[in-house]
Simulated assay, not measured.
Amino acid sequence: MEYRYLGNSGLMVSALSLGGWVTYGGQVSPEIAQKCMKTAFDLGINFFDTAEVYAGGQCEIDMGVAIRKFGWARSDLVISTKLFWGGKGRNERGLSRKHIIEGTDASLKRLQLDYVDLLYAHRPDPDTPMEEIVRAFNHVINQGKAFYWGTSEWSAQQITEAHAVAGRLNLIAPLMEQPQYNMFHRDRIEKEYLPLFKNYKMGATIWSPLASGLLSGKYNEGIPSDSRLALQDNAVMKRLRDALDTEDGRVKITKVKKLAHLAKQLDCTTSQLALAWCLKNPNISSVITGASKPSQIEENVKALSIVPLLTEEIMTSLEDILANKPALDYNFRSS
């Protein structure tokens, strides 16, 4: 396993990590979740990611049970959770000081932990003043209930504002962002966040590296009944299913089939190629993967050996297939 520093900190996280979104607490049994986490840990993964909203809190419960069952040293683990959607009550969602503090306590209780290493603001909250948000996360850190805080799917402007507030008040600024990043979703990491990486040395723990499985090739000929997209009671999965049945969705499937041919040349799977592509980005601290069976984790870890094979020639071939590289240079001269 490869380990990387998380942004501008001394904390080292595994380049590949395991997340519980959709899968743990919902799609698979606690026993399967335990087997997956054990396999991940045995393969060197030390970073496990969850959130208060995943399966209504059950994901945190299942992951916490696994941590206690295997008796892992707490120093060998980096555990993260995220706050925003804590319940249906008026003060059980958002980023008010009240919810950040109470939500943290509730998450720790479900996880059966004294602290989490990373605590994220799961989404921006335009209704709460930025100073309140920054102060609340600092309070949680000062209480020893989290070591670092960060954001998820915040804009560069919002993150910059948080840094400005923290700087003005001599408080701890967000260390990391958790955005979606994959071959089909690139602009935020490769364009919008570039000033953050340069000015603040922000870390990035990215989710959906396989575009919810699309980049694995499993949906090339339809939707398997045991896949995430087949889940009927999940609004996100329904939206993704509907997207596949559009012109853009069909174009993406065509690209995935072309990627499969390139992966074959490298003697790897399409999934491993897509993960290696994410890992190659120097601004990525950790690639959060999902898995409903231990064998998927074993296959995902092999992506680390594919990264050195992504030569300039191969990267050019990938860009020719994807045809979506963000434009960074602009010509403002009038014609």
Rank of each mutant, 00 (worst) to 15 (best):
V236L: 11
K145N: 03
D76F: 05
R241G: 02
K280H: 14
G290A: 09
P224M: 05
I159R: 00
Q180N: 04
P308T: 10
W85L: 14
L111R: 02
K191G: 11
S295R: 15
A66R: 05
F41D: 09
S295D: 14
L77K: 15
Y115H: 14
L119T: 07
F137V: 10
W154C: 00
I253M: 08
S216Y: 09
E2L: 13
I101Q: 10
L231W: 02
A235M: 14
Y219R: 05
V165A: 12
M315K: 15
P209N: 05
F197E: 08
E313T: 15
Q157I: 05
G222K: 01
N300F: 08
S17P: 14
R250Q: 06
P129K: 06
M176T: 15
A121N: 04
G167E: 12
A204T: 03
K88A: 13
I172P: 01
L231A: 01
N331C: 07
L108C: 00
A274L: 11
F84E: 03
P126G: 11
A211G: 02
M37K: 03
T246K: 06
M315H: 14
S225I: 02
M63G: 13
V256C: 06
T81V: 12
M1G: 12
K293F: 07
D242S: 13
V165L: 10
D42Q: 09
S152V: 12
A15C: 04
L231I: 08
G44W: 11
C278N: 02
L266K: 11
S227I: 00
D42S: 12
P179F: 01
V236A: 05
L118Q: 10
A327D: 03
L194F: 07
R186P: 14
A146N: 02
H185Y: 11
E31V: 14
E153M: 09
K191W: 11
D114M: 10
D187V: 14
F197Q: 05
Y24G: 08
N182L: 05
C278A: 11
E131F: 00
W21V: 10
K255Y: 08
H185L: 08
D117L: 01
Y115W: 12
R333K: 14
P129N: 12
G167W: 08
E247D: 15
G144R: 10
H99S: 09
S271K: 02
V140L: 08
F137W: 13
V53A: 09
R110W: 11
Y24W: 15
V165Y: 09
W154G: 00
M183P: 00
N46V: 13
G217W: 03
G7C: 08
Q34N: 12
L214K: 04
G20Y: 08
K82D: 01
A276S: 11
R228K: 06
F332D: 15
A162L: 00
L262S: 04
Y120V: 00
G57K: 04
L118E: 11
H99Q: 09
L210G: 03
E161L: 02
S225A: 10
F84R: 01
E312V: 13
T311M: 10
T269K: 02
V65N: 14
D329Y: 15
F147C: 11
